[in-house]
Write a protein that binds this DNA or RNA. Sequence first.
DNA 1: GATGTTCTGTTGACCTGTCAACTACAATGG
DNA 2: CCATTGTAGTTGACAGGTCAACAGAACATC
Lengths: 175, 175
Amino acid sequence: MAVSTISSRLDGAALEAWRGYLQSHAGIVRELDADLIAHHGLTVRDYEVLLYLAQADERQLPMSALSERTMLTRSGITRLVDGLVDQGMIERVSCERDARVSYARLTAAGYGKLRDAGRTHVAGIERLFLSHFTATELEQLAQLLGRLPGATGGVQCTAGDEAPTAAPNGDCTVD
Amino acid sequence: MAVSTISSRLDGAALEAWRGYLQSHAGIVRELDADLIAHHGLTVRDYEVLLYLAQADERQLPMSALSERTMLTRSGITRLVDGLVDQGMIERVSCERDARVSYARLTAAGYGKLRDAGRTHVAGIERLFLSHFTATELEQLAQLLGRLPGATGGVQCTAGDEAPTAAPNGDCTVD
DNA sequence: GATGTTCTGTTGACCTGTCAACTACAATGG
DNA sequence: CCATTGTAGTTGACAGGTCAACAGAACATC
């Protein structure tokens, strides 16, 4: 059993690398999520959305911008934002110049929540990821992983991305 | 904006590493999934389950074993297996020695499908992941990622794992 | 302008997975 | 031998997301 026949290189170190990549990701993300939910009642997705808003001008973004950044569909974002509006972290604001768009704007409460949650989140990243490496190793990792599709200005951008500055997942706290 | 204040090390290379890790994973998994669905009508999860069965003795495993390996809940596995049974790739077999357990067993059709899909899948991994690195770099990656929680005999094993040999995600083809 | 096309956001129907409750069986201990 | 406790699997209700279809607004072009 296993891995030969077809795959030229999917053996030994290659297999280990791929396995490590998949498994570690599953474990880490799962735990980060559990942490955030337990301590702040937020999903990692919620957190991500709040963070994008916090980083945006006037702390607001059109729904479609959120949809691009999070890689959710527009309907997905509609529903996610619905939830955050119900919790009082976001409010909807209609756009004056284009009646089609409606902004999601971070409320003061949402901003506070985000800051609190940020501590937990960053501590989790530190504990589950960063703490396992030296500074040099982190540089190596950054260099290697940066080559992969999706990283650093990736492949999947379907529509006009207007935010080259964005931190589609990695940037982790506000202020 | 960004990252300071709280996080000691979440800057520069650390941030890049973390970002690259998250984003590349999202992109690669998404594309692998799309490939597999388009060419074979299988989810990556489906594929994973079929593969575990193919690697097991008699090509069968108790539901709970599948649940542990896939990191799905037992009910999740019940439903996933339901689907594969409907498609004729798996059959349910009750255990003689313990009437509580029911095995999921790979059918001949399922095994064939798995082999076909394996080609697509491995080609995808090669294209999206392996091809970006040299052999040496893959060794480095394996070494680094192997330290993370979840990789190589991880943290999350709730109950008695009986399969130290298992390839909880990485092993990618049969035979 | 009237018209056709494109874009934004929402909704309905559905899929996938979780959680909690339940059934059925096994194991343990008095 | 029976009572308790634990384990395997399924089910109902729901959360979270997708897809397809839509309405309303903006743009393009004649």
